[in-house]
Write a protein that binds this DNA or RNA. Structure first.
Length: 210
DNA sequence: TGCCAGGCCCTCTTTAGGGCCTT
C-alpha cells in the first residue's frame, strides 16, 4: 500500500531566491485513505519576519527564537518522510522551499512531488476557486485548525488528497490509483481528463485480462 | 531609482498577456 507525505511550509516570503526562509514545516503521512503519522516544527532561520507574515500565520519573532535551527529541523523532517512521494497544495511553492532548505544541509530531494491544486483544477472545475480553504469547504472536508499554520494546512491538503484519490478511483473500475497516476493526471490538460482516465481504465483492463 | 517569484492555465493565444495560487 503506497504511502505519501503531504507537506506544508510557512515562510517569510514567496521565494527562497529572493531571500525568503522557512519558519515552520509540517508533514503528514497518508496511507490507505487515512492519516497515519504527523510531524510539525517551527524553525529559527535567524531572519526578520515581516508583520504581514506574523499577522497571516500567527508566528512571531518570539516564537521562532526558541525553535531549533533549520538544519536540524530539515534533517528530522527528511528522515520522517524518507523516500515517500511528496504532495503539497500548489506544490511548485513548497518544492522550491523544500529543495532550497535541503540544499543548505547539502541534501537533495529523492522523490517527485504531486500537486493537489493542479489536480483539483482538473477534477473540480466547478469549485468557486482552488484555494485550499475554499476546496476544504467545497468538498466538505474535516476542519483542521488554524489556517496558515503548517500542520493544519498539511492536514487539510492530506484530506483533499484522500478525496481526490477516492474520486478518481470512483471514476475507474478497479484500476489501482497511485501517486504516480495522479502526478501524471495533473499534467493532462483540463479538457483531456476524461480521455486520460478512459485510457488508464483500458490499460488496466488489458493488464488484468486473463 | 525602482523594482524584485515562478509555474501553470485560459483565451479575445501561439509573434502574448493576465489571472491564479502559495507565504
Amino acid at each position: 500500500m503506497e504511502t505519501v507525505a503531504v507537506i506544508d511550509f510557512e515562510t517569510t516570503g514567496m521565494s527562497p531566491g529572493q531571500g525568503a526562509r522557512a519558519i515552520e514545516i509540517a508533514a503528514v503521512l497518508v496511507r490507505g485513505g487515512r492519516i497515519i503519522d504527523r510531524y510539525q516544527s517551527l524553525m529559527n532561520p535567524d531572519t526578520y519576519i515581516p508583520p504581514f507574515i506574523e499577522q497571516l500565520t500567527g508566528i512571531s519573532q518570539a516564537m521562532v527564537r526558541s525553535a531549533p535551527a533549520p538544519d536540524r529541523v530539515m534533517r528530522d523532517v527528511a528522515d520522517f518522510v524518507g523516500a515517500h512521494p511528496l504532495v503539497a497544495h500548489n506544490a511548485s511553492f513548497d518544492q522550491r522551499f523544500w529543495d532550497a532548505e535541503l540544499a543548505r544541509i547539502d541534501a537533495v530531494r529523492v522523490q517527485p512531488f504531486a500537486c493537489t491544486m493542479l489536480l483539483a483544477r482538473r477534477l473540480y472545475p466547478e469549485a468557486p476557486d482552488h484555494k485550499l480553504s475554499t476546496l476544504v469547504r467545497f468538498a466538505g472536508l474535516p476542519a483542521s485548525g488554524r489556517a496558515h499554520r503548517a500542520l493544519a494546512d498539511a492536514e487539510a491538503a492530506a484530506h483533499l488528497w484522500i478525496r481526490i484519490m477516492d474520486d478518481v478511483q470512483g471514476r475507474l473500475q478497479g484500476a489501482g490509483i497511485t501517486h504516480r497516476t495522479l502526478a501524471t493526471l495533473q499534467s493532462v490538460p483540463r479538457a483531456g481528463v476524461d480521455a486520460h482516465l478512459l485510457g488508464l481504465q483500458r490499460r488496466f483492463d488489458r493488464a488484468t485480462r486473463r
